[in-house]
Structure formats: structure tokens, C-alpha cells
Nucleic acid binder design. Structure first.
Lengths: 200, 200
DNA sequence: AAACTATTTTGACAGTGTCAAGATAAGCCT
DNA sequence: AGGCTTATCTTGACACTGTCAAAATAGTTT
């Protein structure tokens, strides 16, 4: 943590901020090391002293993305409602975040995602998972928490990706379809939980 | 359709084949127009007369990917089992295809997917959708077919992407988890269908 | 045979990631 | 204060990329 008040001040975080600006303004394809350097106003090779390569910069961007992501999901935790309903709300918030920050979401989860896993990134990702896993446990019990969490995550992630990639063909209101999907899913969870309780 | 037996013979399809070879051997990052030209043994600019840009070549690769994809899902249609169970089998086949052809799947559905939509590509995509939509209709009825199809697609697509991107944290057997997910999902569909029938 | 067209090559340009060497500035030590 | 060390940044270079324009080549047509 010794990147402060040298030539630039704090180039590292400035570069991450520039990356986000470029991401929203020009899209992922325009997000290059040199573009970030230009945006900040430093020479083209300056970023290499803070990020060994482009993947490391993307990892840093993804990390801050995950931190905001967790905050967005956190807002659902406050609501005083039934656990299963809260899980559904969390799913809706998940997709809303993805649609509100499409380019950032692509960096976080994209197939061209950085295989470089920074400490910061892995902890941020773990926090997001814990969020969902906890909500699943409260909604379906500890035994089913793992499968329910992966199921919910798969649904919302898949939905977000397919909508973003425009892979959903003759469909009208995708938000409405998401709600219906989550309703069916909730029914499934209810059925499984009920069946599980009936056994004992 | 006039690209035959000139200098090379059929450079267009040769390039698509070369693209698949590079994709499996060296990964998506190494898939460039020039690399394809090298692989085939033509000059670096030769591909431009068959694909206006890299995105168009990727679209062609994605198209053949979707065609094979539909074939893979088709094999589940033969099985003489209950429609809902067949839908689950189709979901498993879906994920199996994605895991067997990770790089190809990335080109087909990746976030860096070509926004160029060729005629060949869009028809191939539509065929895949029809496949899933039809199976959903048989399993859950026509009324629910749309929401069920999007739900199933979201689940399997999301699962495949998350596993491929190694975003699933402390999880053991992902295949087992997929089966559990699809079971919960089937319960939900059953419940919704039963509820729907009870209404009338 | 000659004209024409489709295909491919050659050469060029701007842009990229990344490395190596030099320049600059901040902190530290005596 | 003055010099040394280290962190930071710039400059210049290289190989690679996509893409364009012009030339060359080979097949088709007349």
C-alpha cells in the first residue's frame, strides 16, 4: 500500500477509475492499457508499474465491481419478509445490477474474464457467494443450501447473460419472464423442503 | 455460394475449420484472422475476401457450433420417457456439450460474442431455441412453455458459464449439483402445472 | 485470343501489449 | 545540506493485430 503521492499521486486507483469510465463510455473493446493511460494523462507504459498486464487491471476492475455488487444484494437483506421471498428479491436485484452495469458485469463474469485471480478479487467473489448462500440456507435449510444457491445463481446469471447477449428470441418482457422463472423456482424449493420435512 | 475451386478450392470453409482447430488447440485468445490464414497456408489478408472482419468469421464458427449443438440436444428427443424427465435430460446434455467444447461454447455464447448476426447464425440459434421450447411445451403445456423454456435455458446456461469461469467456490461435484438443481426445477414445474390444472 | 471477374498476394498504416533503458522525484541516512 | 537508494514515470522499440488499397494471378466468358 505504498502507492501515494509520488509523481501522480495515486495512479493505481486512478487507472481503475479510468478503466470504469472507458468501460461505460466506450465499451469493453475499447478498454486497453494504453487507453487508460491516455485517460489519466500518463505515458503509455506507466500502467505496467501497477499492473503487470491487462488481465491484472481487469481483475482490479472486477474486484471493485464485486464489492458494489455485494452492496446491491445487501439492500435486500434488510427487508423483513419471508426468507424464500427474500431470495427471490435477491435474484431480481442480481439481474437488475447486471442490466444496470452491463459492461462491468461482463468484466466480472465474462467468458473473456481474467484468469488472474488477485487476493482482492477472490475475497470479493467469496463475499458475493456467501451472500447468496446465506440467503439460500435461510430459505431452504442448511442441507439444501448448496444446491439451492447454485441453482438460484445459475438462473439469474444465465438469465442476465442471455438477455445481455440478446440470445432470447421471440420474447417480450424479460423482466416479467424472470419473475415467472423465479416463481416456478420458488415452488420447486417449497416442494423439496416440504418433501424433506415429511420424511422425518 | 460461389466460393469453390478457385485458387484454394474452398477457402471459406477451410478457414472456419482452421478456426476450430486453433480454438481447441490454442484457445480463444489465439484465434485471429492472421492465425487462421497461417493455419490454412494463405497470405494474411486472404480471409478478408470471405469475411469482412473477425466478427464475421466468429459468427460463422458460432453457426456451425449451434448446428452441432442442436444435434447433441436432438439425441435426447429419441428417448422414450416422460416429457419432464426428457427436459431434464436435455439440460444435462446441454451442459455436457458446453463442457466438452468450452472454447466453442464461448464463441457461441460468450460475452465477447459477435454482434454481427448472419443469416446462417440466426437460423441455427433459432433451431436451438425451438428444440428447448418444444421440449418445454411437452413437459409443461403450451401456456407455460415460454417461461419454462427460458427458465431451463437460464439454469443450464448459467451453470455452464459459472463452472467454465470457475466462479463456483467451495463446491465439489458440479455435475451432481446440476442434477440436484434440475430436480428442484422439475419439482417446481410439476407444482406449477398441478396448480394450473387444479384451477380449471 | 481477349476481356472480364473472382481470388489471392503484397505492402502499408494505425493500434495494441509488453519489454528495456533512461529520466525524474521522493524518501532516507550520515 | 548533500548523496544514495528506491519508487515512479517516460521514451523508444519490437512483434503482433485488424484492415485497407493496389497489384498480381487464375479461372470464366465471349
Amino acid at each position: 500500500m505504498s502507492e501515494k503521492n509520488y509523481h501522480h499521486g495515486d495512479l493505481r486507483t486512478a487507472l481503475v477509475q479510468a478503466a470504469r469510465t472507458i468501460l461505460e463510455r466506450d465499451g469493453l473493446a475499447a478498454l486497453t492499457l494504453r487507453a487508460c493511460a491516455r485517460e489519466v494523462g500518463v505515458s503509455h507504459a506507466a500502467p505496467l508499474h501497477h499492473f503487470r498486464n491487462l488481465a491484472e487491471l481487469l481483475a482490479a476492475v472486477a474486484a471493485v465491481g464485486f464489492e458494489e455488487f455485494v452492496k446491491a444484494l445487501d439492500q435486500c437483506s434488510d427487508i423483513q419478509i419471508e426468507p424464500l421471498e427474500r431470495l427471490v428479491e435477491m435474484g431480481i436485484a442480481y439481474v437488475a445490477f447486471a442490466q444496470a452495469n452491463p459492461a462491468l458485469y461482463r468484466v466480472m463474469f465474462g467468458s473473456d474474464r481474467p484468469n488472474v485471480v488477485t487476493e482482492q478479487l477472490s475475497t470479493a467473489m467469496r463475499a458475493a457467494w456467501e451472500q447468496l448462500h446465506g440467503a439460500s440456507a435461510r430459505a431452504a435449510g442448511d442441507e439444501r443450501s448448496l444446491s439451492v444457491a447454485t441453482l438460484v445463481w445459475s438462473v439469474v446469471h444465465g438469465h442476465a447473460m442471455l438477455v445481455a447477449a440478446q440470445c432470447m428470441p421471440p420474447i417480450g418482457d424479460t423482466d416479467e419472464l424472470l419473475k415467472q422463472s423465479l416463481e416456478i423456482l420458488a415452488s420447486g424449493i417449497r416442494a423439496v423442503v416440504a418433501n424433506n420435512e415429511a420424511k422425518f
